[in-house]
Amino acid sequence: MMHLLICILINYLLVMVAMAFFTLLERKVLGYIQIRKGPNKVSLMGLPQPFADVIKLFTKEVSFPSSSNLYPFIFSPMMGLALALLFWSLYPYSSPLFFPMYGALLFLCISSLNVYATLIAGWASNSKYALLGAIRSIAQTISYEVSMALILLSALIILLSFNLILMTSSQWSSISLLLPPLFMIWFITTLAETNRTPFDLSEGESELVSGFNVEFSAGSFALIFMAEYTNILTMSLFTSVFFFGMIPLGIFTDIPLVLKTMFFAFLFIWVRGTLPRMRYDKLMNLAWKSFLPLSLSMMILSTSLIIII
């Protein structure tokens, strides 16, 4: 029992370390995209920058707005991080702790619960900007969740299983090669799900200052930030699990999985450095008028494909 808890704890702590260095990667890559250096002053080439960030964020002043609802205000960032960590109990590496039969279902459940963290955070801070940002962000996440579930379901129909461990240990072909458009809309949907740049309407800097997290400071803000970046890593992990088959390399089978995850995480940053923000009505039209019909028809296609095969 104790060793199991310690294993899970190590898993979670390493996820948080990965998230910390992912923020450093983002700042570096964005720096080089904009032809500047990015953080390079802290100790050796700026490598311990994330730890300096953590210390800075944690020693900042904590402020709870007088009109906010205190308990939801404290609770929501913690809920966000808890959900983001919970994803990683599904991490399907070659020596997993658990063998969940319906891992993909749990993935869908947790990703739909993520909405509540944003909703509580925006509502509880009792500020106009925060509420507007939260409403926008929820509407966006909800719309893209429909097509995300449908795309995932079309992939699962071809894989004929909900078992993530099975997918990373026995699936030698890759769905992204079988149905490239499916993979492309999945990636765009994950961008929208995590509120990343072409779709970061929840924190449009000029209109909403920072969206649902304006009122948060110090520890609470750090928790929201950690949850957001952990979610990006999670989404890239599941992209590589669902859409890219495993490459059998004996005991090194995990290495391609990690490399693919890193590539998709890098892609998130790359998109952020490249594309401008979308207009809100276009975002909604994209979700409801093109992704939804396309993913519905993709489901019929994949069901008939698997029967023909």
Partner: peptide
Amino acid sequence: IPPMVFAIA
């Protein structure tokens, strides 16, 4: 874990 992180902060 998240409440612990928050407590440290």
